[in-house]
């Protein structure tokens, strides 16, 4: 497997079932390259394509094993395990805060317990988004440490930045609803760190 196919396999491994277009965007490569990579990986039995409403490209169990071995080997070859492990420790602290923020965005305290946030209260939403902006400013620092250790993680910073930009432009589905929302990209980043460091979820 060449590095290009390895990147496609790993990107899909961290995203879950996706279209070739989404894999291309997440990996930062052309749609044609993603498609070619996926077809080659499918021939090797590492990915599969399912039809249907919830279908798309997905990794096979064999694909997961090959990817885990490949990213672990890459990490040790670059001597980056120590730095990434340390950055992951800081990521975990940010992750708790971020999930609190997502929960506060989706649910808010009501008289008799939490209720769904209907986003009618601009004041409340404003506070959450202000904190998301503050959070992002601190996440950038840790993301810098992570991509300093393993360069491919830099793409997460870009995708998170795009999501936050759309939120600021009024597309609030990019907090946690859309496939390229801040939460979904962050969720994939979390998965990537776990897979790369070989930590079970």
């Amino acid at each position: 497997m060449d590095d290009g196919d390895g990147l496609v396999l790993h990107t899909l491994r961290c995203m879950g079932f996706s279209s070739a277009g989404r894999v291309a965007d997440a990996a930062g490569i052309s749609a044609d390259d993603a498609e070619d990579g996926l077809i080659a990986l499918a021939q090797a039995g590492l990915v599969t394509h399912e039809r249907g409403a919830f279908g798309g490209w997905g990794v096979t169990d064999a694909g997961k094993l090959v990817d885990a071995e490949r990213v672990a080997g890459e990490l040790d070859a670059e001597g980056a395990r120590g730095v990434l492990t340390e950055a992951y420790r800081r990521f975990v602290g940010l992750n708790s805060e971020f999930l609190d923020l997502c929960s506060a965005w989706q649910m808010r305290a009501g008289g008799g317990g939490p209720v769904i946030n209907d986003h009618e209260d601009a004041g409340y939403d404003g506070v959450v988004l202000e904190r998301l902006g503050d959070f992002d400013g601190r996440a950038v620092v840790v993301l810098g440490e992570i991509s300093g250790a393993v360069a491919r993680f830099g793409r997460y910073r870009e995708r998170l930045g795009v999501a936050l930009g759309r939120v600021r432009g009024g597309e609030i589905g990019y907090v946690a609803d859309e496939l390229e929302s801040y939460h979904h990209v962050w969720f994939q980043l979390h998965e990537d760190l776990l897979v790369t460091l070989g930590i079970p979820r």
Binding site: L99, S103, Q106, M107
Partner: peptide, 11 residues
């Protein structure tokens, strides 16, 4: 309640 699964289910 503040986990990825909870956030995705609510979304």
């Amino acid at each position: 309640p503040a986990s990825h699964a909870a956030v995705v289910a609510r979304s």
